[in-house]
């Protein structure tokens, strides 16, 4: 089995899975119907992409594993999503800021992944980027509305930016699998995206009259499977059926 490729795919797909799961929790509880529908839509897009990634990963694994085994039957330490996406739905400001910080990265990432030497990954990226371009527009627009809306919304969204910004640096960390795949022309060299990412983020935040936090310390660990305490509960919830009723078809 191509271990590096397999791990590389999980490194992409786990982000979408965990973020898709978080957004799914909001369904039916949005501030109005339009945003409710939009958040569900983003969740649907991400989970649709996850299926393509995991189906490909299952094929590489070649041991009769299915997309669901990979999605639902790993232990907490085996999930390699970044810490940002597992952060809870504290309020709508946190939801939007989390989405904005991720979308901006993911769009740049997919843009490069389209050029991957791995045709399957390039194809998934090509299909996904259209969806993520919409997500990015949605979350950026809401950053502006909340930042430049009322003083209450400004204060709430600034608090979320201050809390979540410390998770952004991890988006650019490279695992052994990442390094190997970059060398093979399959993976994206995220180091090259970093400057552009922060300048895009800064531009939107400033347009939204928000302060860009000056963090010296950033959190990391997700890519090595060392998560925040939030992930365990998310997984307990998400894996409930597969754990309680093993080996069944649904």
């Amino acid at each position: 089995m191509k271990v590096d490729l397999y791990n590389y795919i999980l490194g992409i797909a786990d982000n979408s899975l965990i973020l898709g799961q978080r957004l799914g929790e909001l369904c039916g509880h949005g501030p109005n119907l339009e945003t409710d529908i939009a958040c569900t839509n983003i969740s649907l897009d991400l989970l649709g992409q996850v299926r393509s990634y995991y189906q490909y990963a299952a094929k590489i694994k070649n041991d009769n594993s299915t997309e669901d085994d990979i999605a639902f039957l790993r232990k907490e330490r085996d999930y390699v999503n970044v810490l940002l996406v597992e952060q809870p739905n504290t309020d709508f400001a946190y939801v939007i800021v989390r989405q904005f910080l991720f979308d901006t990265f993911y769009y740049e990432f997919l843009n490069e992944l389209q050029k991957s030497h791995d045709v399957t990954l390039a194809a998934i990226a090509h299909k996904s980027i259209k969806e993520v371009s919409y997500h990015q527009r949605f979350s950026s627009d809401w950053i502006k509305r909340l930042g430049d809306g009322t003083s209450e919304s400004h204060q709430k969204v600034q608090a979320a930016v201050n809390d979540l910004f410390m998770y952004t640096d991890e988006l650019f960390h490279q695992t052994d699998a990442d390094i190997a795949m970059i060398a093979d022309g399959i993976g994206v060299d995220t180091g090259l995206l970093k400057a552009n990412y922060y300048s895009k983020i800064t531009k939107i935040l400033e347009e939204a009259t928000l302060q860009v936090p000056e963090h010296k310390y950033f959190h990391k660990g997700g890519k090595q499977g060392i998560h925040t305490e939030h992930l365990g509960y998310l997984l307990a919830d998400m894996q409930y059926m597969q754990r309680t009723y093993p080996n069944m078809e649904w």
Partner: peptide, 23 residues
């Protein structure tokens, strides 16, 4: 049941269904 749906396929279908209801 969205967060606990037993498979990815079911999760996506349930999300889409609840979204239809919002629509």
């Amino acid at each position: 049941w969205i967060s606990r749906a037993p498979s990815l396929r079911r999760k996506v279908a349930l999300l889409a269904k609840v979204q239809d209801e919002a629509g």
